[in-house]
Write a protein that binds this DNA or RNA. Structure first.
Lengths: 207, 207
DNA sequence: CTTGCGAACCGAATGCTGTTCGGTTAATAT
DNA sequence: ATATTAACCGAACAGCATTCGGTTCGCAAG
């Protein structure tokens, strides 16, 4: 085959296929060869649309982060932070295999800058000094990224009994392996609400 | 060469060389070939000591996490959490290229279980219910891992001027690129102290 | 004291990986 | 009609983790 009459590929099609592959098979399963396979195409053809694999991953990251809701700051900075953080968190929970891509991503990606800009603006608009706004949004981001990067759910060995005598304090936590998702969610919620509650004293002017 | 009179390799030597290589050149620079090179050995020889590259990375992760201080709970749970989190954070700051390894690591690794066990024990000993202790340590862990995984310092494009008009709220934050380390540190500190301050109501019995 | 065995290393090979390059055809712009 | 560019293929390259058979050494048992 040479050039087809109607294009087989497009940046969006490739990006979506990559996301589907990552969601279904994991980040390690994404290779240009496999990606090309699912699109019915040779690997080298992908390079007509993306210069490198990293660019594909950037597109995937942008696609995922695009879903994050930063509109809550109209209802005050506390609600704004809560809505943003929960939205960000739930988006990453929906695409857990993308977490490393999002986490390690450079701040160069457009959707990330868009999001950071909205959050920062929301905080400054509510009266926080710029520097403090940066720190607050940074701290909340850390919480979101951390929650997505090291879930309880992934990881514990299947034979729980092994630990019980060696790590006595963990026995309670381990019993709950099947409740890992709930633990993850509750830990994140506790961290988020506590962090926001603990911010002092709050911006003076607008509330 | 066949078998040398005195062994050239040992698990510890390999693990330390891997950590040195990661620290100096980045995680992507660690390959079994390069690792073997720095040790003056053929790649296949490494497999006499570690079954896979992942096992090498596990050893590195354990080595790094071993340095984390969990002894602070003798001075109460607040100090315990603070000391643990700051110690964990500073260890990861000292080995930033290891962050993805630590973050994505399964909870199977010994030093991680040791650490989790100590923290959980410290919280329960101070009166927190087991479930709450799990959530608290989880939330703090999220903060630490997130801070290590997405530092401000890495990532912004070098030509800052590009952003200024497109993302007006970010201009303040961007001006501080050269202060990225300070921002990272302050954000983490703000998140940590706020989170701990915001924990309510605190365990009843022991304080 | 020698015999046997496992440990430690080498060297070559296997099947992946991302990426490049020259070639071919189709669409588009002039 | 002609030139250019875009989209694809097929073959190749270097580097990757890992495996395997072979060699030599240290050590322990008889």
């Amino acid at each position: 085959m040479a050039r087809p009459r109607t294009p087989l590929l497009s940046p969006d099609r490739i990006r979506d296929a990559a996301l589907t592959l990552i969601d279904a098979q994991g980040l390690a399963a994404l290779s240009m060869r496999r990606l090309a396979d699912t699109l019915g195409v040779q690997p080298s053809s992908l390079y007509s649309h993306y210069a490198t694999k990293d660019e594909v991953l950037d597109a995937v990251a942008n696609r995922v982060v695009r879903e994050v809701d930063t509109s809550g700051f109209a209802r005050g900075w506390r609600d704004g932070l809560l809505i943003w953080a929960r939205s960000y968190h739930s988006v990453l929970v929906a695409h857990p295999n993308c977490a490393p891509v999002i986490a390690s991503g450079t701040q160069r990606r457009e959707q990330f800058l868009e999001m950071a800009n909205s959050v920062h603006g929301g905080l400054v608009g509510a009266g926080w000094p710029a520097r403090r706004a940066t720190e607050i949004s940074g701290a909340v981001k850390y919480l979101v990224i951390g929650a997505a990067s090291t879930p309880f759910g992934s990881g514990f060995a299947d034979d729980v009994q092994v630990y019980l005598d060696r790590y006595p304090h963990l026995s309670q936590a381990h019993r709950l392996r099947h409740e890992a998702n709930r633990i993850d969610h509750d830990s994140f919620e506790l961290g988020l609400t506590s962090l926001i509650r603990g911010l002092e004293p709050g911006p003076g002017q607008t509330e």
